[in-house]
Design a protein around this nucleic acid. Structure first.
Length: 492
RNA sequence: GGUCUCGUGGCCGAGUGGCUAGGCAGAGGUCUGCAAAACCUCCCACAGCGGUUCGACUCCGCUCGAGACCUCCA
C-alpha cells in the first residue's frame, strides 16, 4: 500500500493513479462469456487478468464488488442469419431448451475457471434475469430522446447522441469516419442511420428466446445488458470496467452511450482492456475457427497440442505476459511455462528445508518490494514473476549452503511467496483441504521408505536402494539425493 | 479505405535515453555410487534506413513486415 496503484485507462490512453470513488469500496464490472459453447484459451485471458485485478485490489485492502455477467439471451449471429440467435440455433440443433444449453455451458465454464484457479466473482448476473431492468433502461433512453421505435424494435440514435456527446470517445473514432465504413445497409431498413444500434429487437416467429415488452415480443440488443447490470449492482458511476480489446468497439462504446443517455452520467471511471491471445500471430477466436478449448488443453486432445497442460500452467503462461500485450500460443512456450512454474513451486517447497543462519548474505526485502512495484505499475505480473524467480534462485542457493538466510529471512520469503505466489498470482497448485490428511499420511510413508533406503545406502546395498528408488519412480515419485539427505517430488 | 497497435537473442516474453529483465532450450563446470535436481559461468538481442542527442534498443521521421478494430468474437 506504500505506493499508489497505477492503471492504464483505455479511455484516456494514459496510466493513471487508481483512486476509487468510495474507498474502501471498489466496483468492477467485466464482460463475461456468452454461454453457447466451450470456453477457449481466449476466454482465459480476461478471466485470469481480472482475477488478478480482483485479487490484488482485495489484497490492497479494498472491499471489491466484482460483477462478471453471463450472456444468455442470445444475440444475432451474423448479418446473413437475419435474426436467428446463437443460443436459439444451438438449441434447435441439439433439441434442447435454450436454458438447458445455457446451463450446460455455464457449468462447464465454471469448471474451467476452477481449473484456472479463477475466483468466483461477487455477483454473476445473467442477462435473462434482467429483462425487466433492460426494458426500463430502454424506456429511459427513449424518454430522453436518444432512441426511436421502428416496427417493434428500438434503436439508439447515434447521431442525436453525438450532437451532445462524443460517440467514439473510447475507441478514438469520430462519427464521420464511421459513416464512411457503413456502406452496406442490407436488412437494416428500419434504422435511421446505419451506425445506429439495437436496444431491443423484434423477435420473428421462429425466434425461440423472446420476452414481452412495450414494443412487442422481442429480445434485448447485445449491448444493453452490460449497461444495465453494471449500473444495477455498482451504481450509475463505478470504478473499473474490464474486457477484451476486441470489445472496445462497438460494445463498450455503446455501453458508454447507453449509460450516458439513460442516467446523464459517464458510468465508468477506469476502462481496462486485455489484449488477445494469438496463434501463429493471428487472434484466437471463435469466428476464425483457430481456437483451442480449455478442456482440450487440460486433456491434450487437440492436433495442435503436443501434450496436456494443467490449469496452473495455463494461468502461469498467461500471467507471464503483461495483460495489454498480445500473447502467442505455442507448445514450446507452454512447456517452458510448465517447467518454470515447477521451478517456482520447488523453490517454495525448499523454503522449509533451508537451515537458518545467524547472519544473512542476501537482501531479502527487495524481492517483495519488486513484486509490489511490479503490480502497482498496471499489474505487471511478468515483472513480479521475474522477482519470484530471483527469489527462487536465492532460496535454492541457501539450500545448497551457498547463501545464508536468517530465521527472519526465511519467514519473510515464506510470506512473500504466500502473498504473491499463492494469493495474488495464485499460480501454486491447489490442494484441496480434504486431501491434506492423505498428504500427511503419504509424507509419513515416504519418510519411512526413504529411511529404509538410507539404511541400504549406508550399507552400500545399491541394489536395494535402487530398487526402492525405481519402484517409487514407477509410482510417479522421483527421489533426489542431496547433501542433507533424500527428498522427493511428484512431477505432473 | 479509415482508426490503432506492435516488430526484442533458438522459443516465450519484460523494460529503459547511458547501468543484469526473467523463464525455457543450448554449452561448460561444481556436486554426486549412478540418476535427478540444485548452484556457478557462457550464449550480451532489440526489423531496416535516416534524424535528434555527448550517448538510443528506448525520442522523431520514413521504409518494410505483422496484427487488431470498423460485423458476432475474450
Amino acid at each position: 500500500m506504500e505506493h499508489p496503484l497505477i492503471v492504464y485507462n483505455s479511455l484516456t490512453r494514459k496510466k493513471e493513479q487508481f483512486v476509487p470513488l468510495n474507498p474502501p469500496f471498489a466496483g468492477m464490472y467485466v464482460c463475461g462469456p456468452t454461454v453457447y459453447g466451450d470456453a477457449h484459451l481466449g476466454h482465459a485471458r480476461p478471466a485470469i487478468t481480472f482475477d488478478l485485478v480482483f485479487r490484488y485490489l482485495t489484497h490492497l485492502g479494498y472491499r471489491v464488488r466484482y460483477v462478471r455477467n453471463i450472456t444468455d439471451v442470445g444475440h444475432l449471429e451474423n448479418d446473413s442469419d437475419s435474426g436467428e440467435d446463437k443460443i436459439g440455433k444451438k438449441a434447435r440443433l441439439e433439441q434442447l431448451e435454450p436454458m438447458e444449453v445455457v446451463q450446460y455451458y455455464t457449468d462447464r465454464y465454471h469448471a474451467d475457471m476452477d481449473q484456472l484457479n479463477v475466483l468466483k466473482p461477487s455477483i454473476e448476473p445473467r442477462a435473462s434475469g434482467h429483462i425487466i431492468e433492460q426494458i426500463e433502461m430502454i424506456k429511459s433512453i427513449l424518454q430522453n430522446g436518444f432512441a426511436y421505435e421502428a416496427d417493434g424494435s428500438v434503436y439508439f440514435d447515434v447521431h442525436k447522441y453525438n450532437t451532445l456527446h462524443h460517440y467514439g470517445k473510447l475507441s478514438g473514432r469520430v462519427i464521420e469516419q464511421l459513416m464512411e465504413g457503413y456502406r452496406n445497409l442490407d436488412g437494416q431498413e428500419q434504422k435511421r442511420n446505419p451506425e445506429d444500434f439495437a436496444l431491443w429487437k423484434k423477435a420473428e416467429a421462429s425466434h425461440i428466446m423472446r420476452w414481452p415488452s412495450p414494443w412487442g415480443d422481442g429480445f434485448p440488443g447485445w449491448h444493453i445488458e452490460c449497461s444495465v447490470m453494471s449500473s444495477k449492482y455498482l451504481g450509475d458511476v463505478f470504478d473499473i470496467h474490464g474486457g477484451g480489446m476486441d470489445l472496445l468497439f462497438p460494445h463498450h462504446e455503446c455501453e458508454i452511450a447507453q449509460n450516458r443517455a439513460a442516467s446523464g452520467k459517464d458510468a465508468v471511471r477506469y476502462w481496462l482492456h486485455n489484449n488477445m491471445i494469438t496463434i501463429n500471430g493471428q487472434k484466437m477466436g471463435k469466428s476464425l475457427g483457430n481456437f483451442i478449448t480449455l478442456g482440450e488443453f487440460f486433456n491434450g486432445q487437440h492436433p495442435a497440442l503436443e501434450q496436456a497442460y494443467s490449469g496452473a500452467t495455463i494461468r502461469f503462461f498467461v500471467l507471464q505476459a503483461h495483460y495489454r500485450s498480445t500473447l502467442d500460443f505455442g507448445n514450446e512456450a507452454l512447456k517452458a511455462a510448465e517447467k518454470g512454474l515447477k521451478r517456482l513451486q520447488d523453490a517454495y517447497g525448499n523454503l522449509t528445508k533451508v537451515i537458518p543462519k545467524p547472519t544473512s548474505t542476501v537482501d531479502i526485502a527487495t524481492y517483495r518490494k519488486r513484486c509490489y512495484d511490479a503490480l502497482n505499475d498496471d499489474f505487471n505480473s511478468p515483472l513480479a514473476i521475474a522477482a519470484l524467480f530471483d527469489a527462487a534462485r536465492t532460496i535454492n542457493a541457501a539450500c545448497d549452503g551457498k547463501e545464508n538466510l536468517t530465521e527472519a529471512d526465511i519467514a519473510s520469503l515464506t510470506e512473500t511467496f504466500h502473498i504473491f505466489f499463492c494469493d495474488i498470482l495464485a499460480i501454486n497448485s491447489q490442494k484441496g483441504g480434504n486431501q491434506e490428511k492423505m498428504l500427511d499420511i503419504v509424507k509419513g510413508l515416504m519418510n519411512l521408505i526413504l529411511e529404509y533406503r538410507q539404511d541400504s545406502r549406508q550399507k552400500k546395498d545399491w541394489a536395494a536402494s535402487d530398487k526402492i528408488r525405481d519402484g517409487l519412480q514407477g509410482l510417479g515419485i522421483v527421489v533426489k539425493d542431496g547433501k542433507e539427505g533424500a527428498s522427493y517430488t511428484v512431477p505432473d
